[in-house]
Simulated assay, not measured.
Amino acid sequence: MRTIFMLLHDTDPFVFVIPPSDFKITSSQNNDVVKILDIGEVALMGEKNIKKVNFSTFLPSKKSKFFNYLLNSHSPMAGIKKLEKYKDDKEILTLTSANYNIYLKCYIKQLEYEIVEKTGDIDITIDLIEAREQTTMIDDVNALYERYTGKTSPIKEYQLVERFEDLKSEIKGKVQDKIKSLIKS
């Protein structure tokens, strides 16, 4: 079975007609070693860091025997423009490869390309970084989510809705008390 590497943007696939022969996935853990008097060194394990993927391949020219109109109808330069647009617009993409069981929501961190004159092919190296949603409470404190996306964090929205509901019930209670006191008078 042929290996297929593709980046999906919503339902629009960008298929790398020539899959990379080598690719590198980096997955690490945030940790620190602390020296404690009378105990020695202690490892403090934190949360996992984002995954990073790096691979190289080439986009074949339309005259190349490797060009496949069904898999990717883009000319090499049109493919580069599309990948650059994804990078510049900070689009969340999905890297998939069924053969290697890869399914990763990601951004394009870096795109490097070189035009090979004799063949018309374009050699590319692409660096991807995992796209993870930030939903921790620290967002509410330092407003990172809001500064990055321009939107209110999901946690803050929930808290605002909850606060609004509390205020609404408090006002409703006060209005009912006022009505009861007016009726008694």
Rank of each mutant, 00 (worst) to 15 (best):
T3M: 09
T3N: 12
I4K: 10
M6Y: 10
L7K: 09
L8A: 02
F14L: 11
V15L: 04
V15Y: 10
P19H: 05
F23E: 05
Q29I: 15
N31I: 00
N31W: 06
V33K: 13
K35C: 00
L37P: 00
D38I: 01
I39G: 00
V42Y: 07
A43D: 11
M45Q: 10
G46T: 01
K48M: 10
K51W: 01
V53E: 01
T57V: 06
K62D: 02
K65R: 10
F66C: 03
N68R: 11
Y69F: 08
L71T: 03
S73Y: 12
P76A: 02
E84G: 00
K85Q: 13
I92R: 12
I92A: 08
N99R: 08
I102V: 09
L104C: 07
K105F: 08
E112Y: 08
K118Y: 06
I122F: 06
D123R: 12
D123F: 09
I124G: 02
T125Y: 04
D127K: 11
I129H: 01
I129Y: 03
A131M: 04
Q134Y: 10
D140T: 04
N142C: 04
Y145R: 00
E146I: 02
T149P: 04
G150D: 09
G150E: 06
G150M: 08
K151A: 10
K151H: 11
T152W: 02
S153P: 01
E157M: 13
E162S: 12
E162A: 15
E165I: 10
D166R: 14
L167D: 13
E170T: 14
G173F: 06
Q176D: 13
I179V: 15
I179T: 11
